[in-house]
């Protein structure tokens, strides 16, 4: 869907490239997260995809079409791509409704189509249209403004979204909630999303695919599991942090390591120690600690499918992280 081929960017007045020979591909319907320290070039890559910044070398393709082709008007290109930034950038002199309707109006949608669309979008991002539509941005909380920012980017139903730290300006609790809701939305929308963050935890949580950047170079890319279980170098290891194993447990579903059995062990029943098959393994660990048990039962919906023991978890950790010293 989106392809970068040896893309370079050297900003005028500098000699060190901000982006250096970066190539990768984002598949349709995936969230690809760019992560790295500030100044690593992740935001520049994002801004080159919708041509807010022009690359100095290499090519960028969207659906096989080169974005730098003469026939492509950058303004029209951007209207087909959703764009969310950390500072949100809502127009303070316009109501929430007018803000969300911005791109549809640029695309000259008929007015009778815009109103219901705005209402639908506000509902979709968890806002009450009757309550907020006529308000101005300063009357909303930070979390609500972020939601409006997402709704505005989705307004014309663009197949591609570029999101630059979209949940960066709110406190961790609200951020977690916004992330969860967005992932739920994404399950239905199946947009192709490029997502920039400096927070590796957010990257692991949001990403189908992670691209790790440092000093303009692509250091490693792969699924969160691939990166956690096999960090390419010291930089990636540092970025992931010392709680790598715990993060791995977050990424593994319990059903992947369950010991299938039909019989419910007595200790599990007595301590009411159950989790769901789709819960991450980390949940099994938490439940064990909370209920003071070294065995949890795993259910799929209502039906019991097996157990996970403390030994199983240890074995799992050794297996996925054992292949490196």
């Amino acid at each position: 869907m989106i392809k970068l081929d040896k893309v370079d960017k050297v900003f005028p007045g500098t000699t060190v490239p901000a982006v250096d020979q970066v190539s990768f591909q984002v598949d349709e319907g995936n969230i690809c997260v760019f992560v790295g320290p500030s100044g690593c070039g992740k935001t520049t890559i994002l801004r080159m995809i919708n041509r807010l910044v022009e690359p100095t070398g290499g090519d960028i393709y969207i659906k096989g079409q080169k974005v730098s082709d003469k026939g492509v008007n950058p303004d029209y290109l951007r209207r087909e791509i959703g764009y969310v930034i950390q500072q949100i950038g809502l127009m303070p002199h316009r109501t929430i409704e007018q803000n969300v309707a911005l791109v549809p109006r640029l695309l000259k949608w008929p007015e009778d189509k815009i109103k219901p669309r705005v209402k639908h979008l506000l509902e979709m991002v968890g806002l009450e249209p009757d309550e907020v539509a006529q308000k101005y941005p300063h009357q909303l909380s930070g979390g609500m403004m972020q939601r409006v920012g997402v709704a505005r980017a989705l307004a014309a139903d663009p197949p591609i979204m570029l999101m630059d730290e979209p949940f960066g300006a709110v406190d961790p609790i609200v951020r977690g909630r916004l992330q969860d809701e967005f992932l739920r939305l994404q399950k239905e929308m199946k947009k192709t999303i490029c997502f920039v963050t400096h927070d590796i935890n957010e990257a692991i949580k949001m990403g189908d695919h992670i691209v790790i950047m440092n000093k303009g170079r692509l250091v490693q890319h792969g699924t969160p599991m691939e990166i956690l279980s096999n960090p390419a170098d010291e930089f990636v290891k540092d970025l992931i942090g010392s709680d790598r194993e715990i993060k791995l447990l977050e990424l593994t579903r319990s059903e992947e390591i369950v010991e299938h059995t039909d019989e419910i062990p007595e200790v599990v029943n007595k301590k009411d120690c159950f989790i769901q098959a789709i819960d991450p393994v980390q949940r099994a660990l938490e439940t064990m600690m909370k209920k003071d048990s070294d065995l949890v039962g795993v259910r799929d919906g209502e039906s019991f499918i097996g157990t996970i023991s403390w030994e199983d978890i240890k074995k799992h950790i050794n297996r996925i992280s054992g292949d490196q010293a």
Partner: peptide
Amino acid sequence: VEWPIIEAGRGMGMSPLQ
């Protein structure tokens, strides 16, 4: 007019005149 507002406008495909 703060930078993020202009950036958001550009990013959504507004022309310089718009």
